[in-house]
Design a binder for these strands. Structure first.
Length: 876
RNA sequence: GGGCGCGUAGCUCAGCGGUAGAGCGCUGCCCUUACAAGGCAGAUGUCGGCGGUUCGAAACCGUCCGCGCCCACCA
């Protein structure tokens, strides 16, 4: 039916079809933008720089809505700055994602029945590179699809040659400064990934466990301890009690028998023990628990490792070779047999750490690792925010940031993986330890007994260098000179600790106290339309590419921008994307109309005196909108600026300006030319304002409208300061008149198209020049000879008398007026009450009092009018 | 346990001291010469509960209830 309709009403002359088809323009437009070098930054430019480096997505990743969201915001920011005349660099790249990528390739190998050990280190890393070339980086192509204006000539990878050099350089510098050291400590160990992981790579969740109470010792010298990890008792080297706990005073300093072993262990006094908790006695396993390790240090206890890297018991005896969880039940059974289990197992919910990559239960493990000493680095990272050189947005995130940097523990940077930056330290035959810089020779050959450290660095070590390593550091490149410090970091608040803090520490350290970015704009997570978290593993996950295919990239971008309240999570649903698509289509059709009716950008704007009030009104509104949008941009208020543009474009320009101006356009002549120039201006500026968020549809329309080459490098609109308050008031009144009469017509059951004879009395108003528009929009015919007013509406001083002889529904009209009257009387009562309140008059600001007076006056006017109309109504 | 935040229309969210807002959804009328992916009109809220401050509270303070996030601990 729709199709037929369109055929019956062929569009007048225009090259544009009646519907916007994103798929037909997006791909080609993007290629053109890239080919013409619009996104390529020039380090030698005289222009002021504006830099954003993209948070590098994992090489293993595919685009999800979270990326699409952040990328949209970064693209909007850089596109606007580019239009404002900045030398804009938005730098793309990817992260090698150590564990994630290694896991991926190991899985692939497993399908072939092989392990990485079968291949050996070198062949394995070759294989990962091969995987990367073949499957990695899919996500970058998807960013193009989104329209991301990235400078592809500067694409980087955390494992490329330059960045590897940066890693080695900073490692060496930190090492030489004593900020990197090697130490044996309890670390979080993943028995599946077979590597240490940092504190923040551990996800804690409440798991069901069992608390078992065990009796240690013999005869009078026994003590009951409770544990959820029974298997660790094999590695106990003490029992600790509180020094003031009288129940155990007699035991302190003595040695008691450790069940299932032939060892005795000391009872030590330590204030760490809470006498109120459990039995007040704690088993101490220094090699397998961080707290116990600390106790062990204080009391000079032996650390006894009882498991290998896979979590298999290594202690000689009946449990040797059992997995940690098998060992747990076996040991409980053995202890029960000995009558050592004094209270039966009871369910116990406690927080258990899991590897953030593979969900395996983390095993705390004593291990020799490399560490970054963070105290001075973290201090500097905190100060940069404290003294305002770096602003976090929204600001309340700063507290969380301080809580973190002020309580940071040393960072474990070594990983027992093969995919990553290998630690540049060599060990010599006589115990030499040599840290090698990028230009240093290797201190000796393997044949001479030298070996390189087997471990690689934490992925976040290299991503911590991202804002300057991508610009060429440690070389003093023109890029680094021009584009560092970067301007804004856009990233999720979930990643502050992983990444933001590391970049701050390394950036300030390596770049002589120059901050890596001036502003951190923190975003929330993308959620589905019911507020549920959307992630790859959830079934509600949506592939943004599907939506881009169905509704266009602009629609997805606009929806995301509209949902972007600072720091808050972003809900998104397909219906909303559809609505955004409708908006794009609306812009499309409004521009079609404009082109068909002589809208132009040629020549100077006509003088205000030559314009209609409607023209002056929309230009006044346009410039206010420019100012508003700019303010919102500077405050990262994407939701608000999108909303402001949506309403300005749709409500004011398309629904009011265009409709009010139709009579002018259809009459032709000089006035039509003037309004055509105004409409051209309004669309030109509006498309420019919308371009950073919806680049494709705006580019297509703008080049058609203006004949310009591209909107990408077109000038960002400036507020011309044109304001016309009188015209704004005039059009507001006009809108009121039209809306009131429409409401009346609707209440009376008149069909929208039905023509009604009417007499307009516009004396006492400023609306005289709008009579034609009023008649056009309200379908009001000139009054004929037999005109007889059956209903008179009075709005804003204008009288509109309608001849509805025979059609008016008197009962409905009475009802309507009665309702209006009641509302007006209520309003009057409220205002009167206020104005009679002495305290209010004394304390309220004048502006508020005036407002109330105005309301009272209007209510009085309304009441008089409605009563008059009621009287004039024919008797039922 | 410490910290932060949130509860506003059916849904998702703005508003954060002076008459309750938006988008989507819903109801009615309409293919009115740009657009039915549209137009016009309409309905819907004790602004989580209870106290307090104030001339005036959705907004400020206290408290309770419900939800979420971060950090720490969990023998």
């Amino acid at each position: 039916m729709t199709e037929n309709t369109q055929q019956q009403n062929p569009a007048p002359t225009t090259e544009l079809p009646t519907q916007y088809a994103p798929a037909e323009v997006e791909g080609a437009l993007y290629e053109r933008w890239v080919d013409r070098g619009y996104f390529t930054a020039d380090a030698n430019s005289e222009k002021e720089p504006y830099t954003i480096v993209i948070p590098p997505p994992n090489v293993t990743g595919a685009l999800h809505l979270g990326h699409a969201f952040q990328v949209t915001l970064m693209d909007a920011l850089t596109r606007r700055k580019r239009m404002q005349g900045y030398e804009t660099l938005w730098l793309p790249g990817m992260d090698h994602a150590g564990i994630a990528t290694q896991n991926k390739v190991e899985q692939q190998l497993a399908e072939e029945g092989k392990s990485r050990q079968d291949l050996g280190r070198e062949a394995f890393t070759d294989r990962v590179w091969q995987w990367k070339d073949e499957y990695g980086g899919r996500i970058l192509g998807q960013l193009r699809r989104l329209g991301a204006g990235l400078d592809w000539s500067r694409e980087r990878f955390t494992m490329d040659e330059g960045l590897s050099k940066a890693v080695q350089t900073i490692f060496k510098n930190l090492y030489d400064d004593g900020l990197i050291y090697r130490a044996e400590r309890i670390i979080n160990w993943c028995p599946r990934c077979l590597t240490a992981i940092s504190d923040i790579e551990v996800d804690y969740q409440d798991d069901d466990g069992e608390l078992v109470s065990l009796k240690y010792g013999e005869g009078d010298e026994t003590v009951v301890v409770a544990t959820t990890r029974v298997e660790t008792m094999l590695g106990d080297t003490a029992v600790a009690v509180h020094p003031d706990d009288e129940r155990y005073a007699h035991l302190i300093g003595k040695r008691i028998k450790l069940p299932l072993t032939d060892r005795t262990i000391p009872v030590v006094a330590d204030t760490h023990v809470d006498p109120e908790f459990g039995t007040g006695a704690v088993k101490v396993t220094p090699a397998h628990d961080p707290n116990d390790f600390a106790i062990g240090q204080r009391h000079d206890l032996e650390s006894m490792t009882i498991m290998d890297e896979r979590g298999v018991i290594t202690v000689h005896g009946p449990f040797q070779g059992l997995d940690r969880f098998e060992a747990r039940s076996a040991i409980v059974a053995a202890l029960r047999e000995q009558g050592r289990v004094v209270a039966e197992k009871r369910p116990y919910v406690h927080s258990v750490g899991h590897c953030s990559r593979c969900k395996t239960t983390v095993e705390p493990r004593l291990s020799l690792q490399w560490w970054v000493k963070v105290d001075t680095l973290a201090q500097a990272a905190g100060d940069a925010v404290r003294d305002g050189r770096v602003a976090l947005h929204p600001k309340d995130m700063e507290k969380r940031y301080f809580d973190w940097v002020d309580n940071l523990n040393d960072w474990c940077i070594s990983r027992q993986l093969w995919w990553g930056h290998r630690i540049p330290v060599w060990y010599g035959p006589n115990g030499e330890v040599v840290c090698v810089g990028p230009d240093d020779p290797i201190p000796g050959t393997e044949a001479e007994g030298w070996t390189q450290d087997e471990d690689v660095l934490d992925t976040w070590f290299s991503s911590g260098l991202w804002p300057f390593s991508t610009l060429g550091w440690p070389e003093k490149t023109p890029d680094l000179e021009k584009f560092y410090s970067t301007d804004v970091l856009v990233t999720g608040h979930d990643i502050i600790f992983f990444w933001v803090v590391r970049m701050m520490m390394f950036g300030l350290y390596a770049m002589e106290d120059q901050v890596p970015f001036k502003t951190v704009a923190l975003t929330g997570l993308v959620r589905d339309e019911f507020g549920k978290k959307m992630s790859k593993s959830n079934p509600n996950a949506v592939d943004p590419l599907d939506w881009m295919d169905a509704y266009g990239s602009d629609a997805v971008r606009f929806t995301l921008a509209t949902g972007a309240n600072p720091g808050a999570d972003v809900p998104i649903g397909e219906d909303w994307v559809k609505a955004s698509r409708n908006f794009a289509n609306k812009i499309w059709n409004a521009t079609r109309f404009a082109l068909m009716n002589g809208a132009t950008v040629e020549g100077p704007l006509p003088a205000p005196e030559a314009m209609t009030a409607t023209d002056r009104w929309i230009l006044s509104r346009l410039n206010k909108t420019v100012a508003e949008v700019d303010a919102f941009y500077d405050d990262f208020q994407f939701a608000k600026l999108s909303d402001a543009l949506y309403h300005f474009a749709w409500d004011e320009v398309f629904d009011w300006y265009v409709e009010l101006s139709k009579t002018t356009f259809f009459e032709g002549g000089e006035q039509a030319k003037v309004s055509g120039r105004v409409l051209g201006e309004v669309l030109d500026v509006t498309l420019r304002l919308l371009h950073p968020i919806v680049p494709f549809v705006t580019e297509t329309l703008w080049t058609t409208l203006t004949g310009g080459e591209t909107l990408v490098t077109a000038e960002w609109p400036k507020d011309s300061r044109f304001r016309d308050d009188a015209a704004e008031r005039e059009i507001e009144t006009l809108q009121q008149v039209i809306t009131e009469v429409r409401r009346f017509r609707s209440d009376q059951g008149l069909q929208p198209g039905q023509r009604v004879p009417a007499r307009l009395d516009l004396d006492g108003t400023t609306l005289a020049s709008h009579e034609a528009a009023i008649r056009q929009l309200l379908r009001l015919q000139p009054e004929g000879d037999a005109f007889s007013a059956t209903a008179t509406l009075s709005v804003g001083g204008a009288q509109v008398a309608l001849d509805l002889s025979g059609t008016i529904d008197v009962a409905a009209e009475r009802k309507r007026l009665a309702k209006d009257l009641a509302a007006a009387e209520k309003e009057k009562a409220q205002a009167t009450g206020k104005l009679g309140n002495e305290a209010f008059l004394a304390k309220a600001p004048d502006a508020v009092v005036d407002k109330i007076r105005g309301r009272l006056a209007k209510a009085d006017e309304d009441i008089a009018r409605i009563q008059q109309q009621l009287e004039r109504l024919p008797q039922a």
